[in-house]
Simulated scan of single mutants.
Amino acid sequence: MNISVQESAASVSSTAQRRVKQIVRGRATSDGAGVKLTRVIGSAELPDLDPFLMLDEFGSDKPGDYLAGFPEHPHRGFETVTYMLAGRMRHHDNQGNTGLLGPGSVQWMTAGRGIMHSEMPEQEDGLMQGFQLWVNLPARDKMCAPRYQDIPADAVPLITPAPGVQVRVLAGSLGDIEGPVRAVATAPVYLDITLQPSTQFSVPLPREHSAFAYVFEGEAVIGDETAVQRGQLAVLSTGDAVTLTASKNGARMILVAGQPLREPVAKYGPFVMNTQQEIVQAVEDFRAGKF
């Protein structure tokens, strides 16, 4: 796919451009058996962004920050998306599924009616880095059968849509290139975008999708001249496209969008349903060993 920066910008010049509505910086926390991470969505500043329930960034070369991992725990009613940048994570569930996530791989797990799941580091030292995103399921799908989409790094398209721009397409599409994640209710777009210094690139997005950009390297100007630094998340307005411009030091970010569900949300730890009664039922089912 050979699209110049100028052509890309021209192609979206007459469309509704997204702007930055809110800037959020994550807060340090821990989860699992004490894994240190940064929570960006799911904090008091940004409790959720329909359909996204949580975004955690983990990244450390100190084994004590991650070795305890995420021992077996339940999920019901939503999806977890793990994207590894560095390190190796072994996952296992109570239905016999197992796999190893390595650098560049992604796991899209649909918990549905219930699953017991563990994620444990398969390394004793070195850098462990990546993201976990929680995506809500519509009411009609909350009790569906659990399933995994385990996608190795070499199955994720890496494209150069313009000079100075590299994009890994995990979900959704960019031009004619489609990501490997399939049949997800919220029609997600999940892109890992690297911009060389001072490069500008416009990315088309479905007009009504909720969307955010999280910068994890460098700094970028997003939308209407809003500077977003490393470790900051930009909540975007609706629109057909968003323009990204790297600083003089370049930038790397994830750009994520999904169809909002606009349904009631009831949360209790690893259970996300539509009503409090459904939460009570989830807890009872878990205690009764029905997951």
Score class of each variant (00 low, 15 high):
residue 262 R to C: 14
residue 276 Q to H: 13
residue 237 S to I: 02
residue 271 F to E: 12
residue 275 T to M: 12
residue 242 V to R: 07
residue 271 F to M: 14
residue 228 V to P: 01
residue 232 Q to E: 15
residue 283 V to K: 09
residue 242 V to W: 01
residue 233 L to C: 07
residue 269 G to K: 13
residue 249 N to K: 10
residue 262 R to M: 11
residue 273 M to G: 13
residue 265 V to H: 06
residue 243 T to I: 03
residue 260 P to C: 07
residue 258 G to R: 04
residue 263 E to N: 14
residue 250 G to V: 10
residue 259 Q to G: 03
residue 232 Q to I: 04
residue 280 V to Y: 07
residue 231 G to T: 01
residue 258 G to F: 02
residue 267 K to R: 15
residue 235 V to D: 02
residue 280 V to M: 15
residue 255 L to Y: 03
residue 273 M to V: 13
residue 282 A to S: 15
residue 243 T to L: 07
residue 244 L to H: 06
residue 273 M to I: 14
residue 280 V to I: 15
residue 256 V to M: 12
residue 239 G to Y: 00
residue 231 G to Q: 01
residue 229 Q to L: 10
residue 249 N to S: 12
residue 281 Q to Y: 00
residue 253 M to P: 02
residue 236 L to M: 04
residue 281 Q to W: 00
residue 282 A to V: 08
residue 267 K to V: 13
residue 257 A to G: 11
residue 260 P to S: 09
residue 246 A to M: 11
residue 273 M to D: 06
residue 238 T to A: 08
residue 256 V to P: 01
residue 254 I to C: 07
residue 260 P to L: 05
residue 274 N to E: 12
residue 243 T to V: 09
residue 233 L to G: 03
residue 235 V to T: 14
residue 230 R to L: 01
residue 262 R to E: 13
residue 233 L to H: 03
residue 232 Q to C: 04
residue 231 G to V: 01
residue 279 I to A: 12
residue 251 A to T: 08
residue 245 T to N: 08
residue 243 T to C: 02
residue 262 R to H: 14
residue 274 N to C: 11
residue 268 Y to S: 09
residue 266 A to T: 12
residue 231 G to P: 02
residue 232 Q to P: 02
residue 265 V to I: 15
residue 231 G to M: 03
residue 270 P to A: 06
residue 238 T to W: 00
residue 251 A to I: 04
residue 275 T to C: 13
residue 228 V to I: 09
residue 265 V to F: 11
residue 243 T to M: 05
residue 228 V to C: 02
residue 267 K to D: 02
residue 244 L to P: 06
residue 242 V to M: 07
residue 241 A to Y: 06
residue 272 V to S: 01
residue 225 E to T: 10
residue 257 A to W: 00
residue 228 V to N: 02
residue 226 T to N: 06
residue 256 V to C: 08
residue 226 T to M: 09
residue 278 E to W: 11
residue 261 L to A: 10
residue 241 A to Q: 04
residue 247 S to V: 06
residue 277 Q to S: 15
residue 271 F to T: 13
residue 245 T to L: 12
residue 233 L to K: 08
residue 237 S to P: 00
residue 279 I to L: 15
residue 235 V to N: 08
residue 251 A to K: 07
residue 262 R to G: 11
residue 281 Q to A: 13
residue 269 G to D: 07
residue 243 T to A: 08
residue 278 E to C: 14
residue 246 A to T: 10
residue 280 V to N: 15
residue 232 Q to A: 11
residue 265 V to P: 04
residue 236 L to N: 04
residue 271 F to Q: 10
residue 271 F to A: 09
residue 260 P to H: 04
residue 278 E to Y: 09
residue 246 A to I: 09
residue 270 P to S: 08
residue 277 Q to W: 09
residue 257 A to K: 05
residue 230 R to G: 02
residue 259 Q to V: 02
residue 278 E to F: 13
residue 272 V to T: 01
residue 278 E to D: 15
residue 275 T to L: 13
residue 265 V to A: 12
residue 265 V to R: 14
residue 259 Q to M: 09
residue 259 Q to W: 01
residue 265 V to W: 03
residue 264 P to S: 15
residue 226 T to H: 08
residue 227 A to Y: 01
residue 240 D to Y: 05
residue 230 R to K: 12
residue 233 L to E: 05
residue 255 L to P: 03
residue 225 E to L: 10
residue 228 V to H: 02
residue 250 G to W: 07
residue 264 P to C: 15
residue 283 V to T: 08
residue 235 V to W: 03
residue 243 T to R: 11
residue 250 G to Q: 11
residue 235 V to Q: 11
residue 281 Q to D: 14
residue 250 G to Y: 07
